[in-house]
Design a protein around this nucleic acid. Structure first.
Lengths: 239, 239
DNA sequence: CCTTTAATAGTCGGCGTGACTATTAAAGGG
DNA sequence: CCCTTTAATAGTCACGCCGACTATTAAAGG
C-alpha cells in the first residue's frame, strides 16, 4: 500500500474464477465451460472473467455466476472467496492474478454457455480433471474448503431448496465429504443444533417410490455449528 | 479467464498487505508502519507493497516481511494468505486490489522502517485502531483467522522459539484468544496429541524468578490437531 | 390388507473435556 | 542449610457428545 512514488506501478489483469457446485442425483457436480480460444482451446475450465474497473471481485463473481448459470436471481446464493492465485506464468499470455470463489447451488438449471465459452456443462466432480490453467488445483482447493465449512457452519442448507428433508441434507454431507453417515446420528445432531433447521409443520415430501414420506424442514437462522459436525476421519491424520 | 479478445483488459495495481503478529510480554502485538505520504500521511498502517511482475503474491509478501522486520531469514516463518480486498475506492488514488497475509513471529526483533515508511513499530493489538485504508478490517480478519487456526492446527508453535515451555505455548493461545485456559487441562491436551510437541530430554528453562523450571519442548511433525482444541465459547453463538 | 420402504425413536458404552485438588521439584531468601 | 515460595506436574471425577446399533412407526403400492 505504500511507495507509489518510489516504485514503478506494474499493471496486472485481475480475474475471478468460480467453482460452482451443485448436487445432481446425489452426486457432487461442478459447472465447467469449454474454452473456445487459445490457449487451452477445446479444454474445459472453470467459468470466470475479468473484474471490471467499477466492481469488486465479489461483485464480478456474482455477475459471472448469473451469466453462466442463466439464473435470473443470484443474490441469495452463497458465494465465498477462496484465495487468490498469482503465480507468474499461470496464464501464458499475460500477467493475471485470479481471485477464486466457491458457490453452492440448490438445484441445477441447465448451464448457459457464457459469452466467452463454447459450451457449459455440469460435470461430476470426479470426472472434472485435466482442466485448463491451474484450475485443477483451484477446484480441489474449493472442494476442500467447502467440505471443511460443512463441519462448523450451516452452509449445507445452501445446497438445498427452500424446503428439504433431512435425508437430502444428509446427502449434501455425504456427497461433499465422500463418506457415508449414520442416519439416526445425523438426524440427532442436526436437530440438536439450535437454529440449524426448523420443521415445516405438517409438510411432507414423497420419496418417489414407496415408503413413509419424510418431513420437510427449512434453513434456520443459525450460521455457525457449535459443536461442529466433524467428518469421519479415515484414521486421524497426524501430519 | 476467458474473453481476452472480447472485453477490454483493465489494468489494476496489485499489492500485498501483511498482518505480522508476535508475542511481547505475553500480549499479542502487530507490526505497524507510519505512512510518510498522502493519503493517510502520519497514520499507521499495515506494512505491504507492490507485487512485482516476476513474483507471486506469496513471494512478494515474504520479501516485504523480510524488509519490514529486518530479519535475515524469513524462509521458515509461517505466512498465510488471508483473502483479497478489492473494493473500488479502497485506495483514493487508483484501482488497487490487495492480497492480505498473516504472519507469525516467535521473537520480536525491533522493527525496521522499510523504504517507504516513516517509522515501524510493534503495537499491542488492542491499541491498533484507526489504521489507514481498510486496514482495521484486514487486521481484524487476520486475528480471527489466526485464532481459528489455533483450534485445529499446530500453528501455535510458529509463535514460539525453537525450544519452548508448555507455559509459553499456552500463553500463545491465551493471547490470541483473549481468554484464560486451565493449565493442567491444556497440558494434558497438548501432550495427548501425537506429534504436536516433543520433549527435549533434560532441558529446562528458568522462569526468571523462583519456582521449578519448566521442561522444554520442540515443535513436532504434526500440522493438524485431531481432535481440535476449541476455544472456550462465552456461551455458544447460535447465529 | 399386507408388504415394503424409509423415516423416526431409543439404547449403550467410550472418550474427550471442564472443573478441581493434590503433589513434586527447584530456586532464593534468611 | 533449611525453609519458603513459585510454578510445574500428577491425578480425580462427572458430564456430555458421539459412534454403533436395535427397535418401532408411518405411509405408499401392489
Amino acid at each position: 500500500m505504500d511507495g507509489y512514488d518510489k516504485h514503478a506501478f506494474e499493471p496486472f489483469a485481475v480475474t475471478v474464477d468460480l467453482a460452482v457446485f451443485t448436487l445432481r442425483a446425489g452426486a457432487l457436480h461442478v459447472l465447467l465451460v469449454e474454452r473456445g480460444e487459445e490457449p487451452y482451446a477445446g479444454q474445459w475450465a472453470l467459468p470466470g472473467g475479468f473484474v471490471r474497473p467499477d466492481e469488486s471481485a465479489e461483485r464480478a463473481a456474482r455477475r459471472e455466476l448469473g451469466e453462466e448459470t442463466g439464473l435470473t436471481d443470484v443474490s441469495g446464493l452463497h458465494l465465498e472467496q477462496l484465495r487468490t492465485y498469482s503465480e507468474p506464468g499461470r496464464d501464458p499470455r499475460m500477467r493475471v492474478v485470479s481471485v477464486a470463489f466457491a458457490a453452492l447451488l440448490p438445484d441445477a438449471p441447465e448451464a448457459h454457455a457464457g459469452s466467452d465459452a463454447a459450451r457449459a456443462r455440469w460435470t461430476p466432480y470426479d470426472s472434472a480433471r485435466g482442466l485448463a490453467f491451474d484450475h485443477d488445483r483451484i477446484l480441489a482447493d474449493a472442494r476442500e474448503r467447502v467440505g471443511g465449512k460443512l463441519e462448523y457452519t450451516c452452509l449445507a442448507t445452501a445446497f438445498c431448496p427452500p424446503e428439504f428433508t433431512l435425508g437430502e441434507l444428509q446427502q449434501v454431507y455425504e456427497s461433499v465429504w465422500g463418506t457415508a453417515l449414520d442416519r439416526p446420528n445425523f438426524r440427532r445432531k442436526v436437530l440438536a443444533t439450535p437454529g440449524f433447521v426448523e420443521a415445516v409443520p405438517g409438510a411432507v415430501r414423497l420419496t418417489g417410490g414407496r415408503g413413509k414420506p419424510a418431513a420437510l424442514y427449512r434453513a434456520g437462522p443459525a450460521t455457525a455449528l457449535h459443536p461442529p459436525l466433524l467428518r469421519p476421519t479415515p484414521e486421524g491424520r497426524p501430519a
